[in-house]
Design a protein around this nucleic acid. Structure first.
Lengths: 218, 218
DNA sequence: GAGAGATGTAATGTATACAAAATGGAAGCG
DNA sequence: CGCTTCCATTTTGTATACATTACATCTCTC
């Protein structure tokens, strides 16, 4: 897409992900326009995209706010993600090519490298992890599914989960990916489905445990 | 939402659903603006919404076209819908209130009335059917799920499926709804899940059979 | 003093003009 | 004769000004 609109999208998204614009805080078009150095038109465009991707919500009076996810929302999001990604994993296993398998293996090696460092490289983990899951969805060869998933997988919550991962959880994640690769190598759809379900469910509980811990700290 | 933007949305959507703008045909902003009697700004807004709801697609050069669903796309859409609505049905059954149950029963009575007429009232069927499914999704009490589903359920394909239903298929659909109501009355999540899965799968096969038939006719 | 209504302020919605980009066709070249 | 390149035209992107709507505060009445 065009420059100004893309720039506004990236800028606002990063505001949200960094926490500079915390959940529930209002987003005024003119303020964002000034911040990005563009006019309101591309900002409105960016906000629409962010709304479709559930980063922001609009009140009935059309004011925009950073999305605030309740515990139930998060639970439901993980449940949906588990269903959808497990479905994608099954389809991907049934359609697995040698090329894609090699790509996935190489991707997970990069994840393991990022994790095994003295100070785990969480940003690299996140990027490679997204690449890994994205490649599986691609391998399911259903573009509509892909579009639907992309809006769920790329949620702030997911990123925050991993941002707070400890080494143990990061290694667990990479190990689950290895299991998934075995299922793919065997072209076993049911196996891949089951492993992916477990992978997402574990991530859910890691998130819940972490946020309970944070609540206590307060 | 505001008047002009809403109007443009409704107008363009109806262009697509009616078939006046067939799949693959280009949608030019200025032309649509003239048609709706508004400026390009609200038209752009409407197109963005329609894009998020998969009614239209944008080429890499940002031109907009009416979405063209391949057979695989349709198959995948139904598979996702089955998963998601069955999930919603399970949750709804587990949370079913007497009020909602009564509402659903009344809704399905309206469907049966529409179906049993000498000349089945397909438009009424469609509206009530959407109400029925919408109420179930609401009863699942997970707003994010609802938003995701709405984009899938309201697809042109779904509408066209029913538009081509014969009396037998319409009655079958109403009868499946009755079965679903029994599962809800029993607050049996698993039962509701199973019935809903069958309901959507049958709709899928009704659609495939119908479109195969149309292909032959050509 | 409390509540309802009005009014000013601040936000979003819309229209229009201009800028940039892409497409398609024509002309020139091999 | 086919291909490429360039230019005209069409289409979308952006900025800005103005209109409209929502919100908050203030005042007036009970």
């Amino acid at each position: 897409m065009s420059r100004a609109s893309d720039h506004a999208y990236a800028e606002i998204r990063s505001l949200i992900l960094s926490g500079d614009a915390p959940p529930g805080s209002p987003l005024r078009e003119e303020q964002l326009a000034d911040l990005c150095g563009v006019s309101r038109t591309p900002v409105r465009d960016a906000l629409r995209r962010l709304e479709a991707e559930l980063y922001v919500v609009r009140s009935e009076s059309q004011r925009t706010f950073v999305a605030d996810w309740s515990r139930e929302d998060v639970e439901e999001m993980f449940a949906l993600r588990a269903m959808l990604e497990a479905h994608a994993a099954r389809r991907a296993a049934e359609r697995m090519t040698d090329d894609r398998l090699a790509e996935l293996q190489s991707c997970n090696r990069a994840i393991e490298t990022a994790v095994s460092k003295a100070k785990p490289d969480v940003v690299a983990f996140l990027n490679r992890n997204r690449e890994f899951h994205g490649s599986i969805i691609e391998g399911a060869s259903s573009p509509r599914l892909l579009a639907t998933l992309a809006t769920l997988v790329e949620q702030p919550i997911v990123r925050r989960t991993a941002m707070h991962y400890g080494r143990e959880e990061l290694e667990q994640s990479a190990s689950e990916h290895r299991e998934l690769l075995k299922a793919f190598a065997a072209r076993d759809g049911e196996w891949a489905h089951a492993v992916m379900t477990g992978h997402i469910r574990r991530a859910f509980h890691a998130f819940t445990a972490r946020s309970d811990q944070e609540s206590e700290a307060r």
